[in-house]
């Protein structure tokens, strides 16, 4: 694994590659090329194209409306004069903060349970895979039925348990809606977090726990001194992907609440989508899209730095 640092990089570059190595590299590039081509064709080229569109004022509502070049004008408008964008940013951050906190606390509890040996693990595994495999819009439809203000089972259940004294309009009221949506999101994504954390826990050698038990460590100590530090990398990877998912979130609000009431649950992605396909402002919408992309890029960068080694670099150790 340390082959690269062992040689001075310059020496290695100058060293003539053997025929064998050239052949291997050539073969590898042929194998890699189709996938890289697909990635460029449908991800990076369109991203560049989106940036190009974002420099223009484009309205497709009327045929033959000429494009007007604005330079960075669309970006300037977003940052200085777009209350709806600020609202969407606030909604998205609220979801990211609360939803992720809840998911990771619950996911950790689920994982600790699943990590125990017990009968019926298969049943738990199937149960936990159901919310994960479910299409988000389908789950949104399910929660619509559950949260219904008069016929919903959520109201009936809370009422029967004595938690509420009157039925609440969960997905109509400006106050409750975002929390109802977060609830639906936490339900759907906690299993994924739990699965990843369980996998992380199963890689911890049992000897560590045995040694800790001999030293008389409590369960609390074992969690914080062994389990938590050792699954930290897994935890950060899971956190990063969930964070990015929140910035991509569109299907849940579009079906469950339509972004409403008003704009109470309009996420960044949903707002962008509406500027593009409802207002047909392709230029301004593309600027919003590129902005969202940049936010995700920065978030990812921070997380990858927190992970210590870059995620992509970890392949070196197995070469």
């Amino acid at each position: 694994m340390n082959a690269v640092p062992a040689h001075p990089p310059v020496r290695q570059a100058i060293r003539r590659l053997s025929t064998q190595e050239v052949l291997e590299a050539r073969f590898a590039l042929v194998l890699v090329l189709p996938a890289v081509f697909a990635i460029f064709l449908v991800a990076f080229y369109p991203l560049g194209h989106a940036f190009w569109l974002s420099l223009w004022k484009i309205n497709l509502r009327f045929a033959n409306t000429p494009w007007v070049f604005l330079g960075l004008g669309n970006y300037f408008d977003i940052l200085t004069d777009d209350a709806r964008w600020l609202n969407a940013l606030r909604v998205t951050s609220t979801i990211a903060l609360t939803s992720l906190t809840a998911e990771f606390i619950l996911g950790m509890i689920f994982a600790l349970v699943m990590n125990q040996a017990f009968r019926g693990r298969g049943l738990v595994r199937v149960a936990i895979l159901v919310p994960w495999a479910l299409t988000t819009v389908v789950s949104a439809r399910m929660w619509q039925v559950i949260y219904h203000a008069t016929y919903g089972v959520f109201n009936r259940l809370l009422y029967d348990l004595g938690i509420i004294e009157a039925y609440k309009p969960w997905i109509i009221s400006p106050f409750f809606t975002i929390w109802a949506m977060i609830g639906a999101d936490v339900w759907k994504t906690t299993p994924f977090v739990a699965l990843l954390l369980t996998a992380g826990m199963q890689m911890i050698p049992a000897e560590l726990y045995e040694a800790a038990a001999i030293d008389g460590a409590t369960a609390w100590d074992r969690f914080w001194r062994i389990t938590f530090p050792l699954i930290r990398p897994t935890l950060l990877v899971a956190l990063l992907f969930r964070m990015i998912d929140v910035f991509r979130m569109l299907d849940l609000p579009i079906v469950l609440t339509g972004g409403g009431p008003g704009q109470a649950t309009e996420t960044l992605s949903l707002y962008t989508y509406r500027v593009i396909f409802t207002d047909l402002k392709f230029g301004a919408g593309s600027a919003l899209a590129v902005t969202t992309f940049l936010i995700i890029l920065c978030t990812a960068f921070v997380f990858i730095r927190m992970l210590g080694a870059p995620v992509a670099g970890s392949e070196a150790e197995e070469r």
Partner: peptide, 25 residues
């Protein structure tokens, strides 16, 4: 092969790609 890390970085980048970023083009 040379450029393996670049390929890995590309793949990682696509996994974080928001679909909304390229929907208009």
């Amino acid at each position: 092969f040379p450029g393996k890390n670049i390929v890995l970085a590309l793949v990682l980048a696509v996994s974080m790609f928001p679909g909304i970023a390229i929907i208009s083009p």
